[in-house]
Amino acid sequence: MTRSDLDILKDHLTDRDYELLRNVEKFRLLSTKHIQRLHFDPVHPTPTASARSCIRTLSRLRDALVLRALERRIGGARAGSAGFVWYVGPVGERILQSLDPPVISGRRNYREPSRHFVEHTLAISELAVRTIEAGRQGDLEVLEIQAEPASWQQSLSRFGTMQTLKPDLRLVSASGDYEHHWFIEVDMASEHMPVIVRQCAAYETFRATGRYQTTHGLFPAVLWVVPGPARVEAIRGAVTATAGLDPALFQVCTTEEYLKVVVGLHREGS
């Protein structure tokens, strides 16, 4: 595609197209349902009308190579267009790079990702979409929500080397006069407990640098979101049993409890 062709295409994209493209870039992978909930449900009178409009738009953007879909679908081939998982296509990448300021930089790797990566990334996207929907409903005010790599936090180690903490999500919300900061980790119950403990220790190490507190005046709560109650108890027990970890820093909840926790209707042990 020539620069002239790209400019023509950009002129024909709607504001919603640009917002949709930015969100696919922001969250790396979004399902058709995620995109429908973010961009179409709020403006259509029925779910059927929303779904049809969403699929028409995604088909148009796919034909223009603004977006691409993974070969693997949610629910298999029988799921049809609703089962597609979307990522930024080569033309979409060029559009994002042409914005002022550019939204992305560097070339992409277009290899099909592993099943674990897809499932984990979609689980993160699902929490983000739920949070945005809760904000629209007035349950909380979403001030900032960042996925990787925007969520990453850098600091210097005691040896003077750069170290990077990589939360799955960073959320800043508000209720009344208070801001609430969260680092969110999505656990698929596929990691061994020593891996979970090491990640908790990384949060303690980052907290000790004081870098986040200097900028924001507080340190976020770390929230592990897990599949079920047994995993909740396993992670809580591991945190409590590990020297150097402050149990007050870490919360653990199931996916179903997530919104109640971030809205403030649920506390550990309640």
Rank of each mutant, 00 (worst) to 15 (best):
D177F: 09
E112N: 09
R52L: 13
H44M: 13
D139W: 03
G92S: 08
Q137I: 01
D246Y: 02
H116K: 12
S114G: 12
G80A: 07
M162H: 07
E93R: 15
G83F: 05
L96E: 11
N23F: 11
A243T: 09
H120T: 04
S175R: 15
H116R: 15
R211S: 08
F250G: 02
T240E: 11
S151C: 03
A64D: 15
P90A: 13
P220W: 01
I132T: 12
G76E: 06
V24H: 06
R37F: 08
H180S: 11
G106S: 09
F84L: 15
F27P: 01
E233R: 10
H216C: 02
I235H: 01
I8C: 07
C200Y: 05
A150Y: 02
S125C: 06
Y87H: 14
I196D: 05
A189M: 04
Y258E: 00
Q137T: 06
M188R: 15
D7L: 13
K33T: 15
L38M: 14
A201S: 11
E256M: 08
S4K: 15
L245K: 02
Q36A: 12
E204Q: 13
R62D: 12
R94F: 07
E133K: 11
H180A: 12
A234D: 13
W152R: 09
H181C: 06
T2M: 01
Y178G: 04
R78I: 13
R267M: 05
A134V: 03
E144V: 05
D41W: 08
Y258A: 01
V129H: 03
T2L: 06
A134W: 03
V142A: 06
Y258P: 02
R231T: 07
R231F: 07
S175K: 14
K260E: 08
F219S: 00
